[in-house]
Amino acid sequence: MEEYITRFSTYLFWDVNKDDLDMEKHSQYIIKRVLEYGMLQDWNIVKQYYGLGRIVEIAKGFRELEPRALAYLSAISQTPKEQFRCYTYQRSNPQHWNF
């Protein structure tokens, strides 16, 4: 498990100690961070460890997710955006007017 953590880009977990990360206990944090800030090599590491199906199931529960990350994940997994909580939550939460 630790070999996966050390293979991630160095900047990806700037706010935590990488030695304290556990691929199972912190799966939501790791997946979200890679989807929003990771490079292709980071995505490949996450996909190799968790598998696309598990990533999608975990991501469906995210309250927020960067729109590009959502579009990418939706496209490669062929999962409609409407099945992701972050998409429906964003649509039901009215935003301030942009003047």
Rank of each mutant, 00 (worst) to 15 (best):
K47Y: 01
F8A: 03
L52H: 00
N93A: 03
Y4M: 10
D20G: 01
G51I: 14
L12V: 10
F84Q: 11
Y72R: 09
A69C: 07
Y50H: 11
Y29R: 12
Y11G: 03
N44L: 11
S92P: 03
I58C: 11
R63E: 14
T88I: 06
K81H: 00
T6K: 15
K25N: 14
I76H: 06
N17T: 11
G53K: 13
R63K: 07
L73E: 03
I30M: 12
N98A: 06
G51F: 04
Y89L: 12
F84E: 07
M23D: 00
G53W: 12
M1D: 09
D42C: 01
N98T: 10
Y49L: 14
H96A: 07
E82G: 11
Y87N: 09
I58E: 09
G38D: 04
V16S: 15
D15F: 11
A71R: 13
L70H: 09
V16L: 06
L70A: 11
D22C: 05
F99I: 10
P80S: 07
R68C: 05
S27M: 09
Q28P: 01
P94I: 08
N44G: 07
A71V: 09
S27E: 13
D22W: 02
L52F: 02
Q28C: 01
A59D: 02
Y37D: 02
N98G: 01
E66P: 05
V56T: 08
T79G: 08
Y29F: 15
Q95I: 13
N17C: 14
Y4D: 00
L35E: 05
E64T: 06
K81D: 05
E82T: 10
D19I: 13
C86Y: 06
P67K: 11
R85E: 11
N44F: 06
E66K: 10
Y50A: 04
T79A: 06
E82Y: 12
R7V: 00
I45W: 01
R54C: 05
L21H: 10
H96Y: 12
A69D: 07
R68K: 10
E66Q: 14
Y49D: 01
I58W: 00
R63W: 10
I30E: 09
N93F: 11
D15K: 07
I45G: 12
D22T: 05
T88A: 02
G38R: 04
D15E: 14
T79N: 00
